[in-house]
Amino acid sequence: MNIFDIIGPVMVGPSSSHTAGAVRIGYISRKLLGENVKSAEILLYGSFLATGKGHGTQKALVAGLMGMKADDNRIPYSLELAEELGIEITFGEALLRDAHPNSVLLRLLGETGRTLEIMGESLGGGIVNIAQIDGIATNFSGDYPTLVVHNIDQPGHVTEVTSMLAHKSVNIASMQLYRSNRGGDAVMVIECDQEVPADSIQWLEHIEGIKKVTYLSLQG
């Protein structure tokens, strides 16, 4: 156990799950979008919906979407800051079934028109889980550089991605594969020990059968 999970993290209050965890979900989502957010639809569920106002959950999510981390003193003013920057934010209720009690569904539009739908769960103590990307189940914490590849479910795509990683000396910490149905949409979630180079990600995007690549970098 990391003793700085016991003494720490440094965070803006009041709640590690409803505030710090919410900032983190927003932050990871912004990173996965890969560009500044132009508009965001934020749909809250469960305890996030019920007690979010008193915990500053909405401010925390918006702060994260603007690239702030959990210890940023500007978190309480994030809604005003977003308005000044012309970022369009709408809040609502997420209609989910059997979801984690602290869940949020984010529908994001980036400044170049890139879109992303993310379901995040705040598990407590500031730890989060990204449970869905664009409607397909995933399961990662954002603690590692994470590569998410959407492809058509057909032979060879896993080899293309893992060969590229081997070639760039990137070690795989964990790997998960999901698909909607045989021959349909598939997703690979790969947590890495090193950062994946930007040009390799662009290269992946141009491979036939690969529909979308999102990447969570821990740098910057």
């Binding site: 440094v10 965070m11 803006v12 209050g13 009041p14 590690s16 710090a20 210890d71």
Partner: peptide
């Protein structure tokens, strides 16, 4: 300070900071 959204150290949690 924690309840008012100021910066704290969770030790071990925000509620007991």
């Amino acid at each position: 300070s924690n309840a008012c959204m100021k910066r704290i150290v969770a030790a071990p949690t925000a509620g007991s900071c």
